[in-house]
Amino acid sequence: MSAAHDGTGRAARRRFATLGRSVALFRAFLVEQSDPDHFYGLLAQDSVRQVSGYVPLAGRTVLDVGGGPGYFAAAFRAAGARYVGLDPDVGDFSAAGDSVAGMLRGSGTALPVRSGGVDVTFSSNVLEHVAEPTRMLDEMVRVTRPGGVLFVSFTPWLSPWGGHETAPWHYLGGDRARRRYERRNGRPPKNRFRETLHPTSIAQTLRWARGNPEVELLDALPRYHPWWGRWVIRIPGVREVASWNLLLVLRRTGAEPGGAAEKTELAGGRVAM
């Protein structure tokens, strides 16, 4: 990232992170279950704008770890990026009407991607669903080229939405919240405590970022807050609840290679650059 882009990007990020934008995202969140196309489409566009405030996307290869139903594919490609989505179930991509071309099936903790093979690694609300979150983070670092950028967001366990559909009862314990959900709905929740949903904290993730010599921490902020609400990240304890969702922006350390990245090719289940 050039100094010029960093300076203009900082101003753009502040103009982008308005109260109106936060309200729009919250309203869309309220209809996530009934109108997922609206919510995830808006979130994808918002995420691409947020990423673009740190790194130009045109011509860059983006790996989306946990791409899910593919809502992010169109948004990243519209920004000029070469998008590769990865998910344990490639069939999920069809939910957004997208082709599985350019998509990979694989685990976030064992990415089927060559080391240093992508310019940008991105993951939206996946880390809390991984039993070994630091292992997934290490894998994202491995596949990012020196000078490349990583964007990782997740919902902390103590966030008001930390229990996902069992919230806010997760504050009384994940197992208790799960049992309550089953009694009221006659079925287990999709996000099951310590099976498909794990208690991940901001403190734990920041310790990993600050202690990893292979990355430089560029930013840590509440993903959906207006720019003047960033202060909550600086207060231990408070940030676990008040941030709602953490976004980490990291740069892969090492010498940045010159020239543009080569075109992505899918070969033998791995991404070759």
Rank of each mutant, 00 (worst) to 15 (best):
M103E: 15
L172P: 11
T166H: 05
I233S: 06
H164E: 14
E214S: 09
W228R: 03
A44W: 02
V100M: 15
R223Y: 10
S115T: 09
L57T: 04
F29S: 13
G102S: 08
G53L: 04
T134K: 07
G162T: 01
R49N: 08
V149A: 11
D175F: 13
G258D: 13
T155S: 10
T18M: 02
G67F: 05
A101L: 13
R183D: 10
T200K: 05
R49G: 09
A28W: 08
A11Y: 05
D98F: 12
D138C: 05
V232R: 04
R234Q: 10
Y54D: 02
N245T: 04
S153P: 09
R187A: 07
L206C: 13
P133H: 02
G91T: 05
A58P: 08
R180S: 11
L63V: 04
S22G: 03
A96L: 14
T18G: 01
G66H: 03
A220M: 06
P156L: 03
A242M: 10
Q45C: 11
R223S: 11
P133F: 01
L197C: 13
R176D: 12
T200L: 15
A78R: 04
H225F: 15
T155W: 01
R210L: 15
M136R: 07
H225C: 10
A267R: 10
P156R: 11
D64A: 03
E128I: 05
V31M: 12
V48I: 08
A220E: 09
R176V: 15
D46P: 13
G147W: 03
R179I: 06
R82I: 00
D98L: 15
F29G: 13
D46I: 10
G229K: 02
V126M: 02
E32K: 14
P156D: 03
Q33Y: 07
T155E: 08
R210F: 15
P213W: 05
P69C: 09
L57E: 02
G106W: 02
L246K: 00
L25R: 04
P226F: 07
L218V: 14
V241N: 01
L197T: 00
D175N: 13
A73Q: 13
F154E: 02
G162I: 00
L19C: 08
R142C: 12
G85Y: 08
R187W: 11
V152C: 11
W169Q: 03
L197I: 00
P199T: 05
A3F: 13
D87L: 06
L25S: 08
N245H: 14
P213I: 02
G41R: 08
V48H: 03
R60I: 03
A209M: 03
D35P: 00
K263R: 14
V232E: 01
L104H: 04
L247E: 14
T8W: 01
G237I: 05
V118Y: 04
G268M: 07
N191L: 09
L218R: 09
